Computed example of a mutant assay.
Amino acid sequence: MSDSPPGVSDLLGVLAYAELTAFLRLAEDATRYAPSLTDQAALGGLAAAEYAHFELLRDRLASLGVDPEKAMEPFTGPLDDWHALTFPGDWLEALVKAYVGTGIALDFYREAAVGVDDETRNLVDEVLADEGRSQFAVERVRAALQEDPKQAGRLALWARRLVGEALSQGQHVAAARPELAALLVEAAGEDIGRMFARLTEKHGRRMAALGLTPGP
Rank of each mutant, 00 (worst) to 15 (best):
G170H: 10
G204H: 11
A175L: 11
G115C: 11
F87T: 15
A42F: 01
R177E: 00
A159V: 10
G115N: 05
D81N: 12
L162G: 04
L157W: 03
G103N: 05
E119R: 06
S2T: 15
E126W: 02
V141C: 02
G215Q: 10
Q171S: 13
R206G: 00
R60V: 01
A112P: 06
Q169P: 03
T21D: 08
L26W: 05
D10L: 09
R32I: 03
K97I: 05
G153C: 00
R60L: 04
D148F: 00
Y17S: 10
A52M: 07
E201C: 09
A156Q: 13
E147H: 13
R160A: 06
P74G: 07
L56M: 14
E50R: 06
A18Q: 05
R121N: 02
R177I: 07
L46F: 06
W91T: 09
L212W: 03
E165D: 10
L212E: 02
P88E: 10
T86K: 05
L145I: 12
V116T: 08
R160I: 08
L123W: 01
F75R: 05
A41T: 14
T21E: 08
V8C: 02
G77E: 11
A42G: 11
R121A: 12
A16W: 02
R32G: 03
K97L: 07
P74H: 07
R25Y: 06
R25I: 11
A16V: 07
A156C: 05
A84K: 15
V127T: 09
G44C: 06
D90G: 12
H83Y: 13
D90M: 04
A208R: 14
S36E: 06
P68N: 13
D81T: 15
A129T: 13
E19K: 15
V127H: 02
R154N: 06
L157P: 00
G77T: 14
T213Y: 06
L43E: 04
E139K: 13
F196M: 13
W91C: 03
F136H: 12
E165A: 07
E28S: 14
L15P: 01
R133C: 00
Y51D: 02
L145F: 00
V14W: 01
D80R: 15
D107M: 14
A166Q: 09
V124E: 01
E179R: 14
